[in-house]
Simulated assay, not measured.
Amino acid sequence: MQIISMEPRHWPAVKSIYESGIATGNATFQTAAPEWEEWDQSHAEIGRLVAVDGDQVMGWAALTPVSGRCVYAGVGEVSVYVAASARGKGIGRTLLEELIAVSEKHGYWTLQAGIFPENSASIKLHEACGFRTVGFREKIGKMDGTWRDTVLMECRSKEIGI
């Protein structure tokens, strides 16, 4: 397996993995994956990664800016998704560790993640990569008419902003 930069040619597989995560009901508030153009515009240009085994995309990770304000230029929200058939093999951890390294090379001092409390595997993954829980966002959004909570986690760089 290799971690490489995501390219537009990877989008069909990335979108499929994203849709699989959406279908679990515990990965995101999104109800459908966007088309490439929309996804491309909403994510940071750096930190778009895919885990590949040959030509097969096993997972992906990306950064989304948390704000357009310049004071938050070094703060990004992380997304990490692994294909159902590839879970439990360390791919998520490898992707997240590489995403952290890439973000620091580009001046990010804080990464954050909003995770449904029911998604214990994702919480454990983020903790293993240095994230800590900084809050609990009660009834932050509705999903299928039901209020959902999220755990707010962050990872502060040990290199940037110290």
Rank of each mutant, 00 (worst) to 15 (best):
V57Q: 11
M58E: 08
G59E: 02
G59K: 03
G59Q: 01
G59I: 10
W60Q: 05
W60F: 15
W60V: 10
A61T: 04
A61F: 02
A61I: 03
A62N: 11
A62Y: 07
L63A: 11
L63F: 14
L63C: 14
T64G: 05
T64R: 15
T64W: 07
T64F: 06
P65I: 00
P65N: 08
V66L: 09
V66I: 12
S67E: 11
S67W: 15
S67L: 06
G68Y: 10
G68N: 13
R69D: 12
C70E: 09
C70N: 10
C70A: 15
C70D: 14
V71P: 05
V71I: 12
V71Q: 12
Y72N: 02
Y72L: 02
Y72A: 04
Y72H: 02
A73Y: 05
A73L: 08
A73C: 05
A73K: 09
A73N: 07
A73I: 08
G74I: 02
G74Q: 04
G74D: 01
G74S: 04
V75Y: 13
V75R: 08
V75M: 11
V75H: 14
G76Y: 03
G76C: 04
E77N: 07
E77M: 04
E77C: 13
E77L: 14
V78M: 07
V78L: 09
V78C: 14
V78S: 04
V78R: 00
S79K: 09
S79E: 03
S79G: 08
V80G: 11
V80E: 07
V80W: 06
V80D: 15
V80A: 11
Y81T: 12
Y81Q: 09
Y81D: 09
Y81W: 04
Y81E: 13
V82S: 00
V82K: 01
V82M: 00
V82L: 04
V82P: 05
A83F: 11
S85K: 10
S85P: 09
A86G: 07
A86Q: 13
A86V: 15
R87F: 03
R87K: 11
